[in-house]
Structure formats: C-alpha cells, structure tokens
Amino acid sequence: MSISQSRSLIAALSIAIALPVSGFAGGSSSFLPDYMKPANPLLASETWDDFLREETIGAAEVLDGDDLMALDAPIQAFDAGTVPFTVRQRSDTGARITNLKVVVDENPMPLAAEFEFGPAMGDVTLEARVRYDVFSNIRAIATVADGRTFMVGRFVQAAGGCSAAVSRDPVAAFATMGQMRLKEFNTSGLQMSEMPGNEHEVQLMIRHPNFTGLQVRTGSLEHIEARYVNFVEVKLGDEMLFTMTGGFSISENPTFRFNYIDNGSQEMTVRAVDTEGEEFTESFALRSGT
C-alpha cells in the first residue's frame, strides 16, 4: 500500500470514528454504513397503510426524515407503560420544525401526542414517555415551516402498557393530581448564563394518573374511567415554547424533557388541562445565571 493510500484510509477511519452519537440513534441512510444503522428500524405496517396514514397526515407527501432528525426508542422496553423516546433535530438543517406528531401504530389511541413549537424551541430536542399496547412502530412525523413533512420511526418490542395495573391507588393519585416540578440541567459544566440566545435544557414533570379506561382497580374487575391530560401549554415569559395535544398513550405522570433558546425571561409558565376539563397551572422561576 502506498503512502497516499495509507493516508486516505486513515482519514476515512477518522471520519467514521468522529460521526456524532446522534447518527447511531437516528440512522441517517445518507451516510451511515449498514453496521452502524439502528437495530430496530421502522417495519412495514398494514395498519399504517390501510387507514392510519390518511387519518394522521392525509394526502401529504412524506419525505425521509433521517437527515432532519433522529428518533431514539429502545429495541425492547423494560416497562411497556413508560417507553421512552427522544426526538433530536440535527443541527444546521436550515429548517424549523413547527409541528410534530408522535404515533404508536398499534395502540388503541395511535396518535400519542401532537406538538406545536414556537421559534424559541430552536432545533427541537424533546424526550417523553408513551404506553405500548402491543409490539409496534413508533413514528415521529415533523412538519417544517415551509410545509414539508418528514418521518422517522422505530419498532419497539413492548406490550400490555395500556391496560397495565395502575402504580398508585386512584384516590391517592387524584389527591396529588396536577402537581408540577421543573428541573433545570447544566450540561456545559460552567455557570449557566442568562444571556438571551443561549440554549437551556429542562424537564417538566406533571403528576396525573392518565387513566386509559382499560385498567381495572386492584383486586377487582371494576374498570377505572378514562381520565388523562389532553392539553399542555408551556411559555417562556410571554412567548410560547410549545403546546401538546395528547391522548392516553402518553404515560402516567407525563414528563417532557426539552431544550429551548433563552429569550431573557426569568419565568416559565405551564398550563395543563385534562379530559374532565380540570385545569392546572404553575409558574417556575428560572435560575439561569445564578
């Protein structure tokens, strides 16, 4: 092998090693070799082809979303009632995601959540948890500001989460329903800056049993009536970060971990509404810059 050939090989290996971690999770077909693609790719689905596609996005043309975003979801979930997923928009795509639908094909309520994003979300990074009724695809379907629609997906082995026993007695669950917490993360290792334009990461936690209507009371065959959070609005000062319209496929005690762009406000407000029309609100003082 010549010296020039050796240098070319070393350069190629360096590029492969330097690929971002999100590449493993997202599996962009444009640059990943077969051995680096995800082990649980989206599978063919009669449910999606027969009716769910039309119900979810109508006649919209769906583009391969691998170069826009990555979707992380486990191959096999430990708990079918709390299956985590993460959507990470790839940097420097030149697109702004305005809408995101999360679909679990084989769930009784396939559209788990629909998010509307404001500009302050920047490149969207969002983590949440869903229930799984049977083995199924999970899809992230994004619409960008110019109207194009992109989709990525994974197949997850998990079952029984929509009818699984509730983790708390319903009376106790109702007693704490609507309580919220906000956790801020400092991933830089440096003092958090309050300067507008900087990116921050937080996790919003909402206490709510999100009863599906398919669960029974412990020690009986009596069904618990469906009651779940179906709307969440998160604002940074007066600016909307995102809204979520959801169903019972979102797990008990909904949690959303996300990034946002600092607009200078020192307060984040959250409003959540459930299917009984009960409204829960909370304001959080942000400690960025302290």
Rank of each mutant, 00 (worst) to 15 (best):
I3T: 07
Q5I: 13
L9V: 10
A11F: 02
A11R: 12
S22A: 08
G27D: 07
S29L: 14
S30Q: 11
P33S: 05
D34W: 08
Y35F: 15
A39S: 11
L42D: 14
A44G: 11
A44V: 06
S45D: 13
E46S: 15
E46D: 14
E46N: 15
E55A: 07
T56Q: 03
T56D: 05
T56M: 05
A59L: 01
A59Y: 07
L63F: 09
L63H: 14
D72P: 00
I75E: 13
F78H: 11
G81N: 10
P84H: 11
F85N: 10
R88T: 15
R96E: 13
N99H: 11
K101S: 13
V104A: 07
V104N: 06
D105C: 04
M109K: 06
L111W: 01
F115W: 14
F117D: 04
F117T: 06
A128C: 12
V130D: 02
I138P: 01
R139G: 03
A140K: 07
T143M: 13
G147K: 07
F150H: 13
M151T: 02
M151K: 02
R154F: 06
R154I: 08
A159S: 15
G161V: 08
A164L: 06
A165F: 06
V166R: 12
R168V: 10
D169V: 00
P170I: 09
P170M: 07
V171N: 03
A172V: 15
F174G: 11
F174D: 13
A175Q: 10
M180A: 04
M180C: 00
L190P: 00
M192P: 12
M192D: 14
S193P: 04
E199P: 00
V202Y: 03
T212V: 05
L214D: 04
R217T: 05
T218L: 15
L221S: 14
E222D: 14
E222K: 04
H223E: 13
V232A: 02
L241D: 06
T243Y: 01
M244P: 01
I250F: 04
S251H: 04
N253W: 05
P254R: 02
P254F: 05
F256W: 12
Y260E: 07
Y260I: 11
I261G: 04
D262G: 00
N263V: 11
T275C: 13
E276Q: 11
E276F: 09
E279G: 03
F280Q: 01
S283G: 15
F284P: 06
L286V: 10
R287M: 12
S288M: 05
S288Y: 10
